[in-house]
């Protein structure tokens, strides 16, 4: 039984990462692991090139500001200011997510900021940046983290994201990318 397997996984980051990847693969989520900010930029560059993206928007969290998206990606100007007007026509949106749940490959985000929210909702590709340290084994662990951090003052908008947007509403044919992004890329940064 896989229930026993959970216990084995424990809190070892490498194991949690492997578990996340294993589940993500079944959902067509692309996962990378970067050792540094520069490596994050390399993976973003790779996605931009492969998708032939013309327009990229990013929401600058502390981490993303530190990595510095602006001017680092060849061929596109990454917009991080006044993105509300740009986001609807962007090919890629980049934002930081707060918690990663290994078992279900779920990302959790305090999405109080309107800009942060639309960056992950409207473009066809969403690149999610997560600190590897923020991996937890299962959903109850994530709730524990949220409880510790916020108590009952939970953020007004909490977003849980697992894989791309999808539907099976026509003849139960699984189709990726309805209202949200059809491609989800997760870059873990050590």
């Amino acid at each position: 039984m896989a229930v026993a397997e959970d216990k084995v996984i424990g809190n070892n980051l490498d194991e949690l990462y492997d578990r996340f990847v294993k589940k993500a693969e079944t959902l067509t989520t692309q996962v990378y692991r970067a050792k540094s900010g520069n490596e994050v930029l390399e993976y973003i560059q790779k996605e931009v090139n492969e998708l032939g993206a013309k327009k990229v928007v990013g929401h600058e969290s502390e981490l993303l500001a530190e990595i510095g998206l602006k001017g680092k990606i060849e061929g596109v100007d990454v917009k991080t200011k006044n993105i509300v007007e740009e986001v609807e026509t962007a090919d890629i949106g980049i934002s930081e997510l707060d918690i990663a749940v290994a078992k279900s490959s779920t990302l959790i985000q305090n999405a109080e900021s309107y800009e942060k929210r639309v960056v992950s909702m409207l473009p066809k590709t969403h690149i999610a940046i997560v600190k590897t340290n923020n991996l937890v084994p299962d959903l109850p662990d994530a709730f524990e983290v949220l409880r510790e951090k916020y108590g009952t003052a939970v953020p007004p908008y909490l977003a849980f994201i697992t894989g791309p947007s999808k539907t099976a509403d026509i003849e139960r044919t699984l189709t990726i990318g309805v209202h949200g992004p059809g491609r989800l890329v997760v870059i873990f940064v050590d």
Binding site: P156, L158, A159, F160, T162, G163, S165
Partner: peptide, 12 residues
């Protein structure tokens, strides 16, 4: 295992 999205709205 979980739906693509879970959205929790708490107040304004």
């Amino acid at each position: 295992h979980i739906t693509s999205y879970v959205t929790m709205v708490t107040g304004q």
